[in-house]
Design a protein around this nucleic acid. Structure first.
Lengths: 227, 227
DNA sequence: TAGATTGTTAATCGATTAACAATC
DNA sequence: TAGATTGTTAATCGATTAACAATC
């Protein structure tokens, strides 16, 4: 049951994908699920699924599998979705608005509590009930709101500046959507949402699919997704 | 020099990060760079950087390092940024508009050539020079434009439908921003841009940083980013 | 030459998978 | 009981790192 030491990013991602898969099952699905079913739906190995789940859940039952209800709560508990965290958003342009609109964040325990923008035309407006403040107020308001997560959704050229302001406001974790390498002190955590890199990966897979691996290929993995 | 067999996703991501780092260096930076410098800036091991680069470039020079100009072109060539690919976008809401505005995609060889939306108020409009067509025309226009990449930026509930239309139009690679597991045939490639999962990872790192690993921790990696 | 830096070989480490026993 | 399924142990595989020789 629940380990304490840091787990690998790959494992963490898989756990998240299990949770999402199970939560997404249509109404009226059986209330149990086997590791093989999960593995098949996600293109993974069933032993791996069982091993992953063993580190999280109270275990499945032979011939039955895992009780989805229990599994969901075990996963959520382990992944820490229980305690909601608050964040501020810098940049209320299209991307910022898209993030504000993204219904799904609350499922992951995130709530955006304030937005900032440097554009005076946006300052003072509100979007989906969220007020947009002047970027100058970032350090002050972050401190007052005692928020620890900052989201950067500004153009590349202004990202470092936004980051600095957030850090000044006591932000400890930065979620960066701008295509730049932010410089931050070691005390802070940065996660780059590098959409360019992500796109490149898609294009890479596509190319690999179109020009099949050839003689050299050894481990062309078979089917990943359901037809 | 340049391997042919499929390379690992982690390696591919690192190569992308090298490219981005080097391209981002300020004007007037030296025209050479050492593996140690790259490694330090990205929080990696320098041997790893050299090994990665060896698979891509014509090599560095002892005492000098790598010539950035050559390295950039080697990386770009290897990563396939040379040949630009075209894509269509489904969903011209805030997220869609943010993607259209994202200056950076062209650096990765992607051009969005058409946008679709189900909302009649958006159909017929254009944004940054890109026309928005009715979602009904997806299969037809995709075929006519001979596009192979589709981007899904619609709400979760409509994502599978959008995906089906794209597949009907001959799309082979789907970049999915909706928080659902799309069902696609094996012939297609899907990349899920799961922002919820990404957020969860950030929150995980933050938690790990705030409550230090404790006695159990064995390999707390030291410094990752510059102060 | 001495020092910095690359590139490679071998060792280590961690993650995945195969085989199989346990259990309902 | 027979069959399906879990959980675990051991083997495999791949990726990272350490040590060091090669080179400018």
């Amino acid at each position: 049951m629940a380990e304490l030491r840091p787990i690998s990013i790959m494992l963490y991602k898989r756990l998240l994908s299990y949770l999402r898969l199970i939560k997404q099952r249509p109404e009226g699905s059986p209330d149990n699920i086997s590791s093989a079913t999960i593995a098949h739906a996600l293109g993974l190995n069933d032993v791996q699924v069982r091993k992953d789940l063993a580190s999280v859940s109270s275990g499945g039952k032979p011939k039955i599998g895992y009780i989805t209800k229990d599994l969901v709560s075990d996963l959520e508990h382990f992944l820490g979705h229980d305690n909601c965290s608050e964040a501020v958003l810098v940049g209320a342009g299209n991307l910022g608005k898209a993030l504000i609109s993204y219904e799904n964040f609350e499922n992951y325990g995130l709530k955006i509590v304030a937005a900032f923008d440097a554009d005076p035309r946006l300052v003072g407006t509100s979007f989906k009930g969220l007020d947009v403040f002047s970027a100058e107020r970032i350090p002050d308001l972050c401190r007052r709101l005692k928020v620890h997560i900052g989201i950067i959704a500004v153009p590349a050229a202004r990202a470092q500046q936004a980051c600095d302001a957030l850090l000044e406001g006591g932000i400890m974790a930065v979620w960066n959507f701008a295509p730049v390498n932010l410089q931050v002190p070691e005390s802070a955590v940065v996660r780059n949402e590098d959409m360019g890199a992500s796109l490149a990966l898609l294009m890479k897979s596509l190319k690999e699919k179109m020009s099949p691996p050839g003689e050299n290929a050894r481990t062309a993995r078979p089917g990943r997704r359901r037809p």
